[in-house]
Design a protein around this nucleic acid. Sequence first.
DNA 1: ATTTTAGTTTCATTATTTGAGACTAAATGA
DNA 2: TCATTTAGTCTCAAATAATGAAACTAAAAT
Lengths: 262, 262
Amino acid sequence: MTAESPSQKGGTVGKAMEVLDCVARFGQPVRFSQILEVSHFPKPTLYRLVRTLADLGMLDHDADKDTYMPGRRLLKLAHVAWAQFSLASIARPHIDRLGQQVSETIHLAQLDQGQVLYVDKRNGRDPVEMYSQAGKVGPTYCTGVGKAMLAFLTPEEQERVIALQSFHRFTPHTLVTPEALRARLETIRAQGYALDEEEHETGIICIAMPVLNGSGRVLGSVSITDTVLRTTWAALKEKLPLLRETVERIGHDAQDWHYPGI
Amino acid sequence: MTAESPSQKGGTVGKAMEVLDCVARFGQPVRFSQILEVSHFPKPTLYRLVRTLADLGMLDHDADKDTYMPGRRLLKLAHVAWAQFSLASIARPHIDRLGQQVSETIHLAQLDQGQVLYVDKRNGRDPVEMYSQAGKVGPTYCTGVGKAMLAFLTPEEQERVIALQSFHRFTPHTLVTPEALRARLETIRAQGYALDEEEHETGIICIAMPVLNGSGRVLGSVSITDTVLRTTWAALKEKLPLLRETVERIGHDAQDWHYPGI
DNA sequence: ATTTTAGTTTCATTATTTGAGACTAAATGA
DNA sequence: TCATTTAGTCTCAAATAATGAAACTAAAAT
């Protein structure tokens, strides 16, 4: 009747997905009572939702400790999602190639609801952390990949995304106002690439460039990351031509693919 | 009333997950009518489910081509699932280590509903195909990782899993009867490791060993894979001590972790 | 032995899902 | 051009499933 609001639209399925998010947000196995605390559902309702999700394999239930965590079925579904995820699959060979040319860490990201969604990663030097990035989300206003995309959106899109940012100060270098960010975006747009000057994590710097299709539409972005201990800005910027070549090739291959929303 | 059967239990949420599976099974963006063909739901019901899932981000909708595919939200959820996925996270450092010691491809797998679920992969030689495995499922009866696990289950569990196998002949070497498989499993149990002698894919061979906890319970398995063009059985079997060391270390670290079901 | 806490079940009420059929728009064909 | 098929969307009364206050159980904690 009256305009409801909580957070999510949708009926029963939407509620179930909310529960899934709740559990995922913990980042560790949780008990039913813990989910109850953070969710706004009445106890029996939540109980049934959790059980249903567990029965369906969307949550895994550890019977011993009586805890829940995101289920294996998600892994299988995400495997398919990733494999057909247009930009990731189109970009793969080019990201591979760049990975062989440079020894630094490479990220491929897209915008998703104002946030950066990492969809691929290569780890030149260390073979660690393989799966750790794809599917991860991060802030847009203080990462190289985020700013690179933001800078090349249309003014309207740009404002819409800026309005979604939280402007949390991660480091002393984080840009924490829309004004500061807008000014920086102008520079980025002018020079064609973005830098992350330890804005998200102290000691971590990167160069990033947007992936644009023929019409100049932002599809995603690619970054090369390293630490201040291992590299210098001069050395990192030497990779710009390789990075440019990579994003151009991806943009070319993704010509007629259009990005689903911002 | 009468015993229903179709496939899935569950109410509305279960149906929605069924639709998700349907879409995933295609392995490519699909139109509504294609989903309609393979699903057993009436048109308007399916329509609403698909729309709901798309609204929730579980499916991505390409408005131009009017196609659906598994959504980005799944990627985010699976990212968390994988990160806390006990065996994968416990095993990670050990798999990393093995990856540095050998140049072949390494897989970490678990059993999930009678199938092999790959949860991690390292690709020694080529940096390609990074994401392509975790979340992937495969047959148990004709892969190294599958047979290694199967051989060390209790007899009851073993029979339960064997009953779930389809025994499709992938290559001339595939074992296609329960009897042949049982005989092979006995050998595997005796010698402590499993081989894949081109049973799943011609030209691909591997050695695999189960990850067991202190009580001898199967938690998963690890394999080292190569092609017949690049290696010989003698060369591959030389890696057995490294493999044994790896699975023992994982088993040790996973001591009190108990595997969720078979 | 008593109280508290965490998980589970019940069941009448309520809200959502259901699906035959109707409708629209666009593509196909004669 | 106009009929015809096809793909997608909408409607609404009927059928069904979800809801949640309250009660219950089991196991800790006091």
